[in-house]
Write a protein that binds this DNA or RNA. Structure first.
Lengths: 245, 245
DNA sequence: ACAAAAGTGTTGTGCGTACACCCATGC
DNA sequence: GCATGGGTGTACGCACAACACTTTTGT
């Protein structure tokens, strides 16, 4: 390939990955103790640098997989951070990605192996550089997308109960929702398939398991239907305003 | 500053700017005949490279001002494009920005001076590289933002008429709107100030001019109000489905 | 006088919201 | 038998969509 554009500045291009998971009824974030200078030992997002022969999307997947062993994950570009002094190690620009993970036992072990940790988003430690800002932006993006598309399902196991789903939505919006309205709305979409099994971990009665109908969803999307999941505008119900994500 | 991160690949970081304007009742885009190789002479967005001592936001402003003489513009980061082969001139990644401009006579001359041209978005010529994709994404972003915040006003002169405003919204959503519903909704926000002047260019009767109340808007935003301008879901009225942007 | 665009109100209905009680089970 | 969480239906009010005629003025 002929080289044009000689004489222009070149830059280190980093990627940082905000990895969301949902576990024990809480929205969690995967963070890592940084293994190199500068800021070695401090909490950080999963990061790495863009290589010569890969797109950013590819690099993001590679980095996530290198640092956690995870693959096949819903990932999305968020925003580039480019303050000249954002990284004391060198002038870098960093492209933030966010990822939604269905945490399972396997992933929990993997993350541990790699020294990563799932931290409830309400109890995040301070992160290096501008990583906390990145998390803030990612949360806003997650909220916005959740109200437009059913991406919440990317955070749940294949089989899940309605109370789990509701709890997930509540964690994301930071508001408590009315059980009956929630169930009505979510079932009305026709995108949930009720299974014949019950989950009996979290209650004596047990809750029915559902799965998300990806095929139906995709065919709706092709037809141009939009899903405005209306759960966003739910109201706070029992004086508990302290639910903050 | 100590240098860390040695040995990682460095990259050319380009910026491309999708500049929207609204003129003669149409949504338009500012495009440019490229002045250098590769693809010299073909239509392209306003572009340039990130410098050593500037953030992307700063670079975007600089580039827009260098290529068109425009400054003080609403600008927003859109998305990074990073396919390895996206630019035949060299491996570059490009950060797309979009800008909203109040076209006035002055700007029209400036753009001409710089060899830029305002083209109706319905009649865009093919653009180089992945620039057409960028425009597509920018349009989606514009539509989304328009339904959430009153950014449409960034595209109109300080004083504007309601028919103009409606026509702008129609251009953006690609749908015709009902006059009465539109006026009711938009006036109900309380964000428009009716002036004592009429604009008489486009009709014999003349239409009252309004201005947008930025102060009121900002104070609402501070109080945490959200503006869901509901115009998005307007319906097509007179069988004219051909309005496509 | 007529063409062309600006301006103006009302009504129906569907959706979102609020709300309270029974059910199944494990201990 | 009781505590715990799962599951269910209805009524009200509002906000959105549909809809047609009058006004002004330049030619």
């Amino acid at each position: 390939m002929t080289r044009y554009y000689n004489g222009y500045e070149q830059h280190l291009v980093a990627l940082d990955c905000i990895v969301f998971g949902f576990d024990e009824g809480e929205l969690k974030l995967l963070v890592l103790k940084r293994k190199f200078e500068p800021a070695k030992g401090e909490w950080s997002l999963m990061g790495g640098f863009l290589g010569k022969s890969e797109s950013l999307d590819e690099a993001a997947c590679r980095i996530l997989s290198q640092l956690t062993g995870l693959s096949n994950i819903y990932m999305k570009q968020l925003l580039v951070f480019s303050d000249v002094a954002r990284d004391p190690g060198a002038r870098t620009i960093s492209v933030a990605y966010y990822a939604l993970i269905k945490i399972d036992e396997n992933d929990r072990l993997l993350a541990e192996t790699y020294g990563a940790e799932w931290v409830p988003i309400k109890q995040l430690p301070p992160l290096i550089f501008d990583h906390s800002q990145m998390v803030e932006k990612a949360l806003e993006a997650l909220r916005r997308r959740t109200s437009r598309e059913p991406i919440g399902f990317e955070l749940l196991p294949v089989k899940f109960t309605l109370p789990q789903l509701q709890s997930l939505y509540e964690s994301i919006c930071g508001e408590l929702l009315d059980k009956r309205n929630f169930r009505k709305q979510i079932l009305e979409t026709g995108l949930l398939v009720k299974l014949d099994e019950k989950e009996k971990e979290s209650s004596k009665k047990g809750a029915f398991l559902y799965k998300f109908d990806h095929n139906k969803y995709n065919s709706y999307v092709e037809k141009g239907f939009l899903f405005q999941l209306k759960v966003k505008s739910g109201h706070i119900i029992k004086g508990n305003n302290s639910l903050q994500v």
